[in-house]
Each structure stands twice: as structure tokens, then as C-alpha cells.
Design a protein around this nucleic acid. Sequence first.
DNA 1: TGGGCGATTCGCT
DNA 2: GCGAATCGCCCAC
Length: 191
Amino acid sequence: MPRLRKIRRSFFDRSVHEVAPDLIGSLMLVNGVGGLVVEVEAYHHTDPAAHSYGGQTPRNGVMFGAPGFAYVYRSYGIHWCLNVVCEPQGSASAVLIRAIEPTAGIAAMQRRRGLTDPRALCSGPGKLAEAMAVTIAHNGLALDRPPFELREREAEPEIVAGPRIGITKAVDLPWRYGLKGSRFLSKPFKD
DNA sequence: TGGGCGATTCGCT
DNA sequence: GCGAATCGCCCAC
């Protein structure tokens, strides 16, 4: 397997609507555990569904900082969700990582998740955070340094888009992106 | 200081 | 398909 090019922090210094689809197919590892990104969602600061929409708070502070850093928050009081901050500093926009196709450290993920089916390990934002052991401790960490490792995809994949999941505002915006035909999505895309 | 809510998941029907 | 679990965050009081 050829050595994949490392994703630099400048990769994220672009519109979420460019970064989000460009992340599909890339390799994301945390302490060597992870796989290929197959599903993401874009959250723009002008978007009522974005955490940053109502202004800066202690929770979402990282979103207002520099691009290329991890924004981690707790969802429903139970799960952790991993985002990557995008766009020029201060625009408070991010991409939520929603699903990953496991390729590395599968045994560790199976142990953390308490199940073995590879398709169930990372098919949802809370699931992949648990499988990759992402917590609030990762909030604000740079994505181009350990424990994170991101590598560019080799070829341009076929990408599908659709409405985002689990939100109550701006529900019609088609800002969910996925790898076409992937069996590792949190939910199938409607054709 | 307190109540409502949420970028979810899982088990049960 | 539906609803409970579960708790940090945030704004109103």
C-alpha cells in the first residue's frame, strides 16, 4: 500500500462545504485506531443547527478558534461527538465526523464497543467516538499531531449528499455527505 | 439556581 | 418504528 499523504492543517482552512466532501475516503486514526471516513456533516456558523449559531460559549469555544483542531462535545448527555474546525479562524464552522469504515485497531474497537460486527463499530458519531476512545480530553487538540493522524485519500471517491440527521433546525439543507454504496454508514442515503 | 433540551444509541415491539 | 436512558449545557428567572 502506498504511503498516503498527510493532511495538513491548511486543508481545513476552506469552506466546510469543500472540506466535508473532501474528507470522505480519507484515513483518520486516533492513537493508531480508526479507518476511512465514510460519512460527515457540515455545520456553518450561519446555520441555525450549528452549535456556534447562538454565539461563543465555554462549550463551543474551540469552534471559534483556528481551523484544523478537534471540537468534541457531549450529545444527549451520553455520547461524545468529534468535529473538525474549518474555515478561516473565527468563522466558527465545523464538520461532524459521523461514520468510519474500520481498518486499523479493529480488536481495540471491538473491545471498547463490546461487540464484534465491523459495521456496527463506527456507524454513528457516538459509536465512532467510543470505538476510537475520543472524549472531551481531545477537545482543542490539533488534528495533524498525535494522537490524531489524518491521511489523504488516493483517488476521488463517488460522493452522495442528503439532509442531516437528528437535528430540528434547518432540516432540509443537504449538508450530509457520504461515500456512495458504503456499508458502514450510520443510515443509508436516499437515492 | 433550575428546568428544558439535544449534531444519539439501543432495546423492545 | 418508538421511546427510554441520561446529563452537560445554556438561558431565563
